[in-house]
């Protein structure tokens, strides 16, 4: 029950960031850069996924290396119905959430019986199974992927094909998801999840069957991640099994760690800096030396390594220390 301090650098920075994200469509309009809006949309969607990973990884200590599978499942829950001409967005979202939750329930029930490295490997193995399942479905494009010819349809009058409309759907979703997890972390349930990470032995001695609580947390995380996937399906209009490859899951972990685990705003910082770096680095390097941009992965990796090794608590932790100075 630490007293929350307003007006710390971290707090100001977070609010400024949210405000900036809120007006991004206007800015991109003014500067006539539709490209920025597109990146920002991607940031919002991946932040939703990163927040749900952070809940089990940061607060719950469950390092899932398979969360990209939920994004992929969510995206295919848009792509496959549209392929069969079922255009209702409500159906897509319902499918994305329930199928992801079901996948999380089945895979979680098995993988949560293990700990540590074994848990990491099993979640990755399940995600790879999903990857190969979609790879083998020739009807839906197999490894060539599936083009989504039109977007989910909600009410008449709301056209989510419009980038600005879609952006605000993602933005409102992000705010709601942040609030949802904020409540969850502070609730009795969240306290049990945090306690199980901190000291499982003690939790069991107190009478908690930690497995059950972890499984529910895993299912919630998977379902929200699936929702992010449904947004992603509408965002890209082209989906392929590559979305759920284990390297994608790894990137998601990286974003969470980069931003600072077990913090409310960490995932926002993490995804934002990850994607901005990814977009900017090649250009900046090309400016320094023509053609150098091709090797942008090298400095990118070095920067990520530096933050993980030397900046305790990621970006969020760094901002906390700024406030104490």
């Amino acid at each position: 029950m630490r007293t929350s301090n307003f007006l710390t650098p971290k707090w100001l920075f977070s609010v400024a960031l949210l405000l900036l994200l809120a007006v991004t469509p206007i800015l991109s309009d003014i500067f006539d850069q539709a490209f920025y809006l597109s990146i920002a949309t991607r940031i919002l969607i991946l932040t939703i996924a990163a927040i749900s990973l952070n809940f089990i990884l940061g607060y719950g200590g469950m390092i899932s290396l398979g969360h990209a599978a939920f994004i992929g499942i969510g995206a295919y829950c848009v792509g496959i119905p549209i392929y069969h001409d079922y255009s209702s967005g409500w159906l897509h979202i319902f499918l994305a959430i329930t199928v992801s939750a079901l996948f999380a329930l089945i895979t979680g029930a098995i993988s949560l019986r293990t700990k540590g490295v074994h848990f990491i490997m099993i979640t990755m193995a399940f995600a790879q199974m999903a990857f190969f399942l979609f790879l083998s479905m020739d009807e839906y494009g197999g490894d060539d992927g599936l083009t989504i010819w039109y977007d989910s349809e909600f009410f008449s009058g709301i056209d989510i094909d419009n980038p600005t409309t879609f952006y605000y759907i993602c933005f409102v979703s992000l705010i709601l998801v942040m609030y949802l997890y904020h409540r969850l972390v502070a609730s009795r349930f969240g306290r049990v999840i945090r306690g199980a990470k901190s000291n499982e032995k003690r939790m069991q001695a107190l009478g908690y069957s930690t497995y059950n609580y972890r499984l529910v947390a895993y299912v919630i995380s998977g379902a929200v991640c699936g929702y992010a996937g449904a947004l992603m399906g509408n965002y890209t209009n082209f989906i392929s099994p590559d979305m759920m490859g284990w390297t994608r899951s790894g990137e998601l972990i990286f974003m969470v760690v980069l931003g600072g685990t077990a913090t409310a705003f960490g995932p926002v910082f993490g995804v934002l800096s990850f994607l901005v770096l990814e977009e900017m680095l090649p250009n900046v390097m090309d400016m320094i030396h023509d053609g150098a941009g091709f090797y942008w992965h090298l400095p990118f990796g070095l920067i990520l390594l530096f933050v993980v090794l030397f900046v305790r608590g990621g970006i969020s932790g760094f901002l906390d220390r700024l406030g104490k100075r």
């Binding site: 409540r183 969850l184 609730s187 349930f189 969240g190 306290r191």
Partner: peptide, 9 residues
């Protein structure tokens, strides 16, 4: 402890 919404503190 499956109470998800109310602030436990």
């Amino acid at each position: 402890s499956f109470h998800f919404w109310r602030n436990a503190n």
